[in-house]
Design a protein around this nucleic acid. Sequence first.
DNA 1: CTGAATCCAATAAGATACTG
DNA 2: CAGTATCTTATTGGATTCAG
Lengths: 112, 112
Amino acid sequence: MKNEGHEYRCTVEATVAVAGGKWKPLIIYYLLSGTKRFGELRKLIGGITQRSLTLQLRELESHGIISREVFAEVPPRVEYSLTELGFTLSPVLNAMKEWGDSYLSWQQDKEQ
Amino acid sequence: MKNEGHEYRCTVEATVAVAGGKWKPLIIYYLLSGTKRFGELRKLIGGITQRSLTLQLRELESHGIISREVFAEVPPRVEYSLTELGFTLSPVLNAMKEWGDSYLSWQQDKEQ
DNA sequence: CTGAATCCAATAAGATACTG
DNA sequence: CAGTATCTTATTGGATTCAG
């Protein structure tokens, strides 16, 4: 999911490069509802390791999707939020959420 | 991007499991405009190897997103098309395409 | 033409321990 | 609390060869 400095044949590739992968859609989705701390995201997502969450957050930050604010407190507090650009991904994530919802109910129907 | 038989905390995960990853969004996007042969998809996508395309197509097929039709001809012809379920992903892919478009023009603006 | 098979390299992810 | 460092494993991708 790298694709740095490579021209896209189809702009879907750009979206995949910036917001694709196993964890980024989930991170962005949760941040749509507001600023979250590192530990909050970790609990919400579940199943992601500290390391992976850190790496994904850094990538999102480097692409200008999220911003990171460090508070000089003890214990430390770091808050992540979507940038203006990040919020423009809202239609993508909402479409993914809705599709997931209907996919699961479609599966339930099939089981019977 | 496996996640078989695992309950999702958030249905975004289901969408990622079925239609996520580096290549699946692109494959689905191209199939939205109609049935394609293996070689056509390969050329359209560009940069994907035979092996990867084969694997991704099999996964999409196993999730019921695409269907595969083999024609008993020489030379052989295999056509891939979206299933009814596959077409329901259209809003997701269109949102991704649109975001990619505006992201690229946003980047162009920044360069000046 | 559309793959399957094999082998190998690169990348991503997970487990664990440790730190400011 | 929010990471970093290190090590190991799993997954993905690429190159090549072969086959119906």
